[in-house]
């Protein structure tokens, strides 16, 4: 497999409850930003789980060289387990990591988390929790990052910050696949948009996607 292609997808179907949705041949390259767009319940999360290798498609084939490598594919969602009361620092460093200890200090400084490093993640606000998750990404620098509506609960200030960090991660070489309801961001920042509607996944390249299209199609 060519090293520039992280995930290879051959056309097929994904099972979604009692229905199927179809996906065409697709490729995920290094350094790409891909937005997954669609209404609630069309299967965005399920699709991302297939890309993580946690689920296998009903037909077709999804494969990645990264599935066998530890911590090369990151998963980010909104969830914060209420039982877990680990420290911020411990959460950021969780997972296999090859860099030296310097990394954690730089990352904590970058995200303004120095004062919070020995606090339980339960004491954090939503914005701080988002910063911890972003700090994890900068600390581990995985090849592919899958995000499931990471900015859903954030106010506009954090949203702007989030967009900047995503751009930075991309320049560091990470591929980003993000399920989102933020059509503006999808139309501006994403190289490709995977738009799921009527049990079909359609790929659109950057300049051809505009929120306006979706609204018209919906009517």
């Amino acid at each position: 497999m060519d090293s520039n292609r992280w995930i290879g997808i051959e056309a097929g179907h994904v099972a979604l409850g009692n229905r199927l949705f179809h996906f065409p041949d697709l490729q995920v390259g290094a350094g790409e930003v891909i937005a997954v767009v669609g209404k609630n319940g069309v299967g965005k999360s399920v699709w991302l789980r297939h890309l993580m290798g946690w689920l296998t498609p009903a037909t077709g084939k999804i494969s990645s060289v990264l599935w066998n490598q530890k911590n090369q594919m990151a998963w980010v969602n909104n969830h914060r387990e209420s039982f877990a009361d680990l420290w911020v620092e411990d959460v950021i460093t969780l997972g296999e990591h090859s860099q030296d200890k310097q990394g954690i200090e730089a990352v904590l400084l970058k995200f303004d988390l120095k004062a919070k490093r020995e606090q339980s993640i339960q004491t954090l606000s939503d914005g701080e929790w988002m910063r911890v998750r972003m700090a994890r990404l900068f600390y581990h620098q995985p090849s592919v990052i899958l995000m499931d509506e990471p900015s859903a609960h954030l106010d506009f200030e954090y949203k702007i910050g989030w967009e900047g960090w995503v751009k930075e991660l991309q320049t560091l070489g990470s591929t980003i696949i993000c399920a989102t309801h933020d059509l503006q961001w999808a139309s501006e920042a994403a190289h490709k948009v995977w738009w799921i509607q009527d049990d079909q996944l359609i790929e659109m390249q950057h300049p051809h996607f505009h929120p306006h299209i979706l609204i018209k199609k919906d009517k």
């Binding site: 993580m52 594919m73 969602n77 969830h79 387990e81």
Partner: peptide, 18 residues
Amino acid sequence: SRSLDAWVMGDDFARSVG
């Protein structure tokens, strides 16, 4: 023990760190 740390963070988190 580190796997246990990852486990309490939730199924998805644990799976994503392998």
